Computed example of a mutant assay.
Amino acid sequence: MTIRLTNTFAKSVKFEGKQARYFDSSDPGFGLVVGAQKKSFVVNVRVGGKKKLETIGYFPELSVEEARERARKHKVALRDGLVGDGSLGDLFDHYFKVHGPELAKSTVNQYRRIRKKFSDWESLEPAYLTIERCRVRFLAITENDGPIAANAAAIFCQAVLAWAVERGLLPENYANPWLRVKRNSRKARKRFMNKGEIKRYWASMAELRSEGRRWQMSFYALEYLLLTGRRKEEALSLRHDMLDLVNGTVSYPRTKTDPKVFYLSKTVVELLSKVPKIKGCSFVFASFGKGNTPIDEHTLYSVHKEICKRAEIENLTLHDLRRTVGSQMRLAGADLADIADQLGHDDIGTTKKYYAHISPSRARDQADNVSAIMADQQGK
């Protein structure tokens, strides 16, 4: 039967010995099924060439208006290409297809790399994604890749599931398990290498490099990070068409903030000229034998960790290479504005936060002041 579904009708209609179906006259495919125990909202969809009714909620837990909106979202999701009862892999695919174009390219690339951390979950249905399973994976990523990488992985998964609920791909009462996983604390870090550590880092890299062809592209990428202060994502996303080695510039269409052009030193130009080009790959730091993709960030982390281990340098993250560049510029007498330009900070407040306190003359004057104050109290 076709009728204009309202809350009044849904409340008054009774079960009369057999199941009855009432479809909405204003929204085709949306209906109410009245059974002996429940009144169910359904939507008529086509999956694999066959029509089927899918339950999307129950009256009175959902009002007719809420159920109608959920049905519309569900039909839009199906029309966009995702069949019902999909796996996490289906959700990931659909997320990148529909929502990907709305995100920054660097964010999409980062999310695709994060997805690889969950390759064994691709066939898992969202209903079987428990809080404990998420916590175990979060701890594993923290142990293997660091606390920041684990936080990023959790944020990605939480965002995909929340988006799926909003799109009607998951029920509105779906309990997103990643909301219950406590993130790693992110205190402001001011770790950077001193000159002795920098020398040991370079020496250990050269030692590893001399042992063979393994990790060669990662060595080039780490050199680029050390010599420029670029972010890890900016190294991994670097393409040949972004470089002008004749004029010594690199143009990033999208950084963490805005499009930027950076000047390259002669040393960096020489470095980039030596990086072997991989046929069919547009990325500078290419992944051998994996098509048009850059080196994997896990490989970069592994090489960095091995260098630090040999150099006996503790508690140094990849991002600390960037902070090392900024700190060494400051120690060499560079203004905060120059450091901000080199590192690509839009807000000089960020530069001040990490580098304003680094000044040999200021530190020496402060030490003298403290000693004078304390010495003046001696004997009293």
Rank of each mutant, 00 (worst) to 15 (best):
V47M: 11
R46L: 09
L53H: 10
R68W: 06
E66G: 04
L62T: 03
H74N: 04
K51P: 00
V47Q: 12
K50H: 14
V47H: 06
T55V: 15
A67H: 03
L53K: 11
H74V: 09
E69Y: 02
V47K: 10
R70Y: 00
L53Q: 12
G48I: 07
E69H: 07
E66W: 03
F59H: 11
R46G: 00
L62W: 03
Y58I: 08
I56Y: 00
V64C: 13
R68V: 12
A77W: 04
E61R: 14
Y58N: 07
E66D: 11
I56W: 00
L78G: 14
P60S: 12
E66R: 13
K51L: 04
F59R: 03
R68E: 05
F59C: 05
R46M: 11
S63R: 10
P60D: 10
V64Y: 06
V64D: 04
R72H: 09
D80P: 01
G48H: 10
L53A: 09
D80E: 15
V47Y: 04
F59S: 02
R79Y: 07
E54T: 13
E65R: 15
L62I: 08
R72Q: 12
S63N: 07
K50P: 02
R68M: 11
H74S: 05
K75Y: 00
G48N: 14
K51V: 08
R79A: 15
R46S: 11
E69A: 13
K75D: 00
A67M: 08
P60A: 13
P60L: 14
K75P: 00
E61Y: 05
R46E: 09
G49I: 14
R68G: 06
G49R: 12
A71R: 03
A71H: 02
K52F: 04
F59N: 02
K50A: 14
H74R: 15
A71K: 03
G48A: 12
E69N: 10
R46N: 06
L78P: 01
G49F: 12
L78W: 01
V47C: 06
E66Q: 15
Y58C: 05
E65V: 14
E66P: 01
D80A: 07
V64K: 06
K51W: 08
E66I: 09
H74T: 12
K50E: 13
R68H: 09
L78F: 01
E65W: 03
E66H: 06
